[in-house]
Design a protein around this nucleic acid. Sequence first.
DNA 1: CTGCTTATTGACCATCCGGTCAGTAACTCC
DNA 2: GGAGTTACTGACCGGATGGTCAATAAGCAG
Lengths: 217, 217
Amino acid sequence: MNSGSDAPQARRRLPPAARTPQILRAALEEFAERGYAGARMAAVASRAGIAKGLIYHYFSSKEALFQATVRACTQPLFEEAERHLAGHAGPARELLGALMRMGYARISADRQERILFRLIITEAERFPDLARFYREEMLARATGIARAVLRAGVAAGEFRPEVADMPGLAEVVLAPVLMASVWRMILGEGDAPAPEAMREAHLDLLLHGLEAPRAPR
Amino acid sequence: MNSGSDAPQARRRLPPAARTPQILRAALEEFAERGYAGARMAAVASRAGIAKGLIYHYFSSKEALFQATVRACTQPLFEEAERHLAGHAGPARELLGALMRMGYARISADRQERILFRLIITEAERFPDLARFYREEMLARATGIARAVLRAGVAAGEFRPEVADMPGLAEVVLAPVLMASVWRMILGEGDAPAPEAMREAHLDLLLHGLEAPRAPR
DNA sequence: CTGCTTATTGACCATCCGGTCAGTAACTCC
DNA sequence: GGAGTTACTGACCGGATGGTCAATAAGCAG
């Protein structure tokens, strides 16, 4: 099914640097489809086009494979947003709009990211390492970006001064994007609230809610 | 473990009307802790203080037990909010504040509700019935409440007229409450963003973002 | 080509788990 | 108290699954 392009047909020796990501990709698919408990090591092997035993040559157990899988996916997640943030010069409200478009677009396009999020939601309680990883490497990074935008807006006089360091505000600003993703996981593409509508409403609410009164237009 | 109060010590015959909720409660605990695939029927039986076979006297399979478990929990979920909505007379912004306090308080207090939500997130893709149930009985009800508040505010001249029927806005308004719940599931009580801070920031953002401008821009 | 290293295999094991069933006893009705 | 109903038990089964290991062969150095 998945193995059209990269599955070896016969026994084919590969250096670990090539085999490892192949296994991790297969594992992400399997964990995503079945959850941790439901995933079968034999199915991971089959998706990767290798024998089950080989997985244990690279990962000591199912749990080790799971942790490695989650970690391997978060690398490129925030890079784009952070690049955007660093390179932006214009008004904060445009930056906000651009980041919002990026966030909601990702929710629509990137199924792997939703899947990853669901895995974290599902398994964090059982794997404290995973919860810590989410908190430090994902949530903190995301709220950091939101806070930076808020502060930039205040510094430029676009936003009300109070919003610069209001506790909980970054999380509130972020939440609808994430919930759009969650709803799409639960209900599927057809029945979930439309991300574009949410994005427009979200942006409208934020701009009216954050903006300093009598904003120059 | 859980069976301090209602677990029978020896064979004790109970009418189905008493046994069924006992099994459902045990099942909720087990499903919540392990997910669908990870839950063991023997553990459900043990939590309920009965033999495994008895479960199959009441439910035909693991899946039937799961569906019944989810359905049994949603009854009282929205009743309070809807009662509040129907009985309110004052300004919409006070109604909004009251509903917000209620929502965030529930997230803090009611662990079962968070658990239920996670079960839905986790398993909806595999059980289309469950997704439909969530859409119709939970999300639609919740957005309905939010929309009613928005319309009431517009009707009273408190909110900008555009917000009465802006597509996606009800979902955006709702999202932070739900994300507060999700974060609490993932990170636990200690490390999740504080619901009180989120509530205050959320309310502040909403009131500024929804309110009709007093002075023309 | 020869021999060494190690990536790779697939049969195998022990265990666990959903589901069954034949038997048992608690409760009810007469 | 006797008979009938049915809630209840727990041993058991078949299949699935995480994990092991000895054999195998691909690639490489000489």
